[in-house]
């Protein structure tokens, strides 16, 4: 894993080589603000917590995370630099992980930019900081799962737009599987354990638990294994695509 750091640094730096990264962060913060204050009715609720802020993250990430990941492999395929990368003394695991961690780190930077909202709520009231920290951790974990999906989908194609669209689609499936409408469809005829299994696949089920301040090991394992699975898929897809 000597070259994990080298790949990570190169990828992270490449986010900031164009103004796009800064524009992205601005959009990220703006959308977060709009959702929290208007749709989430942050002030009207009169409660000192960040519930309305975190609640929208699964939906925001659906649109905001795939653009971070879509470039990771699609661009390598398009420019042909995949051939350079894969003939350097770098293992596939180092490349996949390095890229993923760089994207995750970039997301963390964007998420960290939302700290004024924490300051605001602390100034206005006396929030439970433990729950807020849990919320941030949960949000970052969930972003990791979105990124892993996006990264795997980016390895399928050399077209970033296609990578974006299919990542949104796959991520959407992982959200929608927790919706009552989907679960009702199954609950009519499928046995209960199937319905539960489908519900437990959803980001929402696990994320909601975390932002309530309940850090359950099973939710963390859920996100971690999701990341692990999709990164493994990512490596397999890179291997298939190049031959």
């Amino acid at each position: 894993m000597n070259n994990l750091g080298t790949i990570f640094k190169r990828e992270l730096a490449s986010y900031f080589l164009t103004p796009l990264a800064y524009i992205f962060i601005v959009i990220f913060l703006l959308l977060n603000g709009i959702f929290t204050f208007y749709l989430g009715q942050f002030f009207q609720r009169g409660q000192a917590d960040l519930q309305p802020f975190f609640e929208f993250h699964p939906y925001l990430y659906l649109i905001l995370i795939p653009p971070i990941a879509m470039r990771l492999w699609a661009e390598e395929h398009k420019s042909g630099s995949i051939e350079l990368l894969m003939t350097l003394p770098i293992s596939l695991a180092e490349a996949v992980l390095g890229k993923f961690l760089a994207a995750w780190c970039f997301t963390a930077v964007a998420l960290a930019g939302t700290f004024p909202i924490w300051l605001t709520v602390s100034y206005l009231g006396d929030p439970d900081h433990g729950i807020i920290i849990a919320g941030y951790l949960g949000s970052l974990l969930m972003a990791g799962a979105y990124l892993a999906i996006g990264s795997a989908m980016s390895a399928v194609t050399q077209n970033q737009v296609i990578a974006f669209v299919i990542s949104v689609l796959v991520c959407f499936l992982f959200i929608v599987s927790g919706f009552p409408i989907v679960l009702d469809f199954f609950s009519g005829w499928a046995p209960a354990f199937v319905v539960n299994a489908i519900a437990s696949l959803s980001f929402l089920t696990h994320f909601d638990a975390i932002i309530q301040g309940v850090i359950d090991l099973k939710d963390i394992i859920y996100f971690a294994s999701l990341i692990g699975f999709w990164l493994f898929a990512n490596a397999v897809l890179v291997e298939i695509k190049k031959s």
């Binding site: 070259n3 080298t6 790949i7 190169r10 730096a13 490449s14 080589l17 164009t18 420019s79 042909g80 630099s81 995949i82 051939e83 350079l84 003939t87 350097l88 003394p89 770098i90």
Partner: peptide, 23 residues
């Protein structure tokens, strides 16, 4: 490789630095 594909967004210096580190 054919067509000399590289990371176009990097400068020569940075790109070669990346290669040196990987090596």
């Amino acid at each position: 490789p054919e067509g000399a594909p590289m990371y176009g967004d990097m400068t020569t210096q940075r790109f070669l630095g990346f290669i040196a580190q990987v090596r």
